[in-house]
Design a protein around this nucleic acid. Structure first.
Lengths: 109, 109
DNA sequence: GTCATATGTAAGTCTCGACTTACATGCTTC
DNA sequence: GAAGCATGTAAGTCGAGACTTACATATGAC
């Protein structure tokens, strides 16, 4: 895991509102408008947070049609279990050393 | 663990520069000026990040005097291993429900 | 004395992310 | 038709945090 990937997850989860979002859908999938009402949060704002969480791979969204024909966008938790400690952080940062100018294009020195 | 504590750790670690700081002192304790040189970062900026990390309990600083008499502020890693998953997040957010107006002062309803 | 090193902090700038308001669209139901 | 509820997005405001420059202080070496 590169530090960029690690950072995406940590920064995504390092926000009070997004913690609440995650905690709210632990119980099960929910569509955006209902989730917004439950959290007392404006829908566009929730949208932004959900996008961020989805990019980090923590939640998964899917647009579906209800029986009545309405489009509902459901979000559910993606399984994740990240261990944050000195080793994982050091490993992620070390992974960034690859891909620097020194070995770009793999031209032998 | 309350969500406030969890958030302090996650937000502290959710920043590229601070990840680099942690990765750099995994190898051993180091004083601020040397660390700043190694990371190519201004010392006041590094200071700010170190303060943030220390408040979150991820690093520990101690002001010491070298044999030559100069004051050096050493920082080292505090042991930590945080598991970030749905359960820990839900538990932290749920912990915040305590201490709300409903049960402040413990007056029985 | 001056120079080089260290810590600590104050003050200012500036960018990015959080947040709001508003609008467009589509589908039901009345 | 109008009303209600859903998604999706554009545009603008605002504040916190990241970052820089600058200064004060202390010590040792020359």
């Amino acid at each position: 895991m590169t530090s960029e990937e690690l950072l995406a997850v940590l920064a995504a989860v390092g926000h009070a509102q997004r913690l609440r979002v995650i905690a709210e859908i632990v119980g099960g999938r929910m569509y955006v408008s209902e989730l917004a009402r439950r959290l007392g949060m404006s829908r566009p704002l929730l949208y932004m947070h959900l996008e961020r969480l989805e990019k980090a791979g923590l939640v998964v969204g899917s647009l579906e049609l209800s029986k009545s024909g309405k489009a509902l966008k459901y979000f559910e938790l993606a399984p994740f279990d990240l261990h944050v400690n000195a080793e994982t952080i050091a490993a992620a940062v070390a992974a960034d050393a690859k891909g620097t100018v020194s070995d770009v294009k793999g031209i032998p020195t």
